Amino acid sequence: MYKRLLAGFLIFMTACVNEVQLPIRQVKPRLVVDGLITDEAPPYPIKLTLSGAYSSGGGFPEELIINGAVVTITDNGDRTVQLEQDVLQPSYYWVRDPSFQGQPGHRYTLKVVLPDGTVYVSSSELLAPVAPIERVYAEYRRGEGSFGQPDLYNILIDTRDPATLGDYYRWSTYSYVPRWTTVDPQHSTCSVCSCWTPYFSELTNVLSDALINGNRISHRSVFNSPVYAIGKQFVEVRQYSLSRSAYQYWTHFEEQRSRTGSLFDPQPASIEGNVHQQADTTVLALGYFGASSVSRQRLVIPGDTIQYDRFLNRLNKAFIPPGSCPGNFPLSQLGPPTNW
């Protein structure tokens, strides 16, 4: 009797399920701008694309690339430079003129004339000075390797905020990390089983001096560099100045990126920046054109304090995939970075 009731209930429930065809939202492509001028020597890249769907594995769709745009940057001294489109990567336009170098205290404006004649301009962006990085150092932290989490070096910096209120910072860090494949180097003579692979920080590590004006910024974490194998790590930290509007943009960007995706979160929205149509300022592009001073420092982490056999035994070679380094890590190089 119970089985007949259960079968009848399941048939009833199945009969009540109707397929619903949801309309696919068609969004008109929008201009996407991603670029930065700094007080370091050129070149400076500006990336221009159209918004749309693409996958990292299939390459960038040709229909989203903007070919033939006229792109210029003007400083507040009314000097203008025209950017050159990259032949091999046509979504990038470059400032290559060595005499056009960003200067602290100057303001810079980007102008983009699309092939159809539509003109976009950015807000005038101040290139503010930035305090120098005083020290870069690392602290070793043990991870849960059995759960797919490697050990790591927490990369930290010290600097001092100037006494003037209204300074904003962003940090960008990358490291070259040793990786092994197939077997570890002490038990193999394989020439392509050991390499160095780059890892990059998020772009949204930002700070306002509203609460720390004129004080030291100490022990500021800017990156977690993973430890997948034993060997030297090569780290570079860049400290950028930001305008107030750029700080607000990157803060908003991080808020979107870090949402948990629960039912109570607001729906994600496209993040508009400081570039708009010249004829209609209500039509905004996505992305941001920025201007920053840069302070950079490098660090070599010896890695010689990690006990080799204990490291391998604890992780059970969890981070040593089969195959070669080039096959597993496309951005890797077989030797450590030079001139470090």
Rank of each mutant, 00 (worst) to 15 (best):
138 A>L: 04
132 P>N: 05
208 S>R: 06
115 P>M: 02
189 T>C: 12
24 I>A: 12
217 I>G: 02
247 Y>E: 03
100 F>Y: 14
43 P>E: 08
171 W>R: 05
296 R>E: 15
303 G>E: 03
257 R>P: 00
180 W>Q: 07
185 P>G: 05
215 N>R: 08
262 S>H: 09
2 Y>L: 15
79 R>G: 13
57 G>H: 12
262 S>R: 04
339 N>V: 05
126 L>K: 06
242 L>P: 03
223 F>R: 00
169 Y>R: 05
252 H>A: 15
84 E>W: 07
133 I>H: 01
258 S>G: 08
131 A>E: 15
293 S>L: 09
275 V>N: 08
296 R>C: 02
178 P>A: 11
177 V>M: 11
95 V>T: 07
159 T>Q: 01
156 L>N: 06
183 V>A: 10
185 P>V: 12
233 Q>V: 04
287 G>V: 12
205 N>F: 04
50 L>A: 14
23 P>K: 14
200 F>E: 06
312 L>H: 09
83 L>Y: 07
134 E>L: 11
268 P>C: 12
37 I>T: 08
253 F>T: 02
97 D>W: 07
7 A>P: 00
308 Y>D: 06
306 I>T: 13
60 F>S: 02
143 G>F: 04
165 L>R: 10
92 Y>Q: 08
299 L>T: 04
312 L>A: 11
233 Q>E: 15
82 Q>F: 11
234 F>T: 00
60 F>C: 08
144 E>F: 10
131 A>Y: 00
79 R>L: 14
275 V>T: 12
212 I>Q: 04
280 D>F: 03
266 P>S: 15
107 R>E: 14
235 V>L: 02
202 E>S: 11
321 P>M: 08
30 R>L: 14
260 T>W: 11
116 D>Y: 01
269 A>S: 10
130 V>R: 01
168 Y>E: 12
309 D>R: 06
283 V>Q: 12
246 A>F: 13
102 G>F: 00
202 E>C: 01
68 G>V: 07
247 Y>A: 06
311 F>D: 14
338 T>M: 13
334 L>Q: 05
135 R>W: 02
229 A>N: 11
137 Y>N: 03
148 G>C: 01
215 N>K: 06
156 L>F: 11
172 S>T: 13
32 V>C: 13
56 S>G: 06
181 T>A: 09
56 S>F: 11
75 D>L: 06
237 V>C: 11
315 L>R: 06
188 S>H: 02
130 V>W: 00
115 P>E: 02
69 A>S: 10
289 F>E: 14
185 P>Q: 04
262 S>P: 00
187 H>M: 01
241 S>D: 05
185 P>K: 07
65 I>K: 10
308 Y>F: 08
287 G>T: 09
239 Q>N: 10
184 D>M: 03
157 I>D: 04
239 Q>S: 02
76 N>F: 04
330 P>A: 03
48 L>G: 05
320 I>F: 03
246 A>C: 11
324 S>H: 02
82 Q>A: 15
27 V>G: 00
323 G>Q: 09
4 R>V: 14
198 P>F: 03
167 D>R: 05
81 V>K: 03
159 T>D: 14
241 S>W: 05
259 R>Y: 04
107 R>F: 15
151 D>T: 00
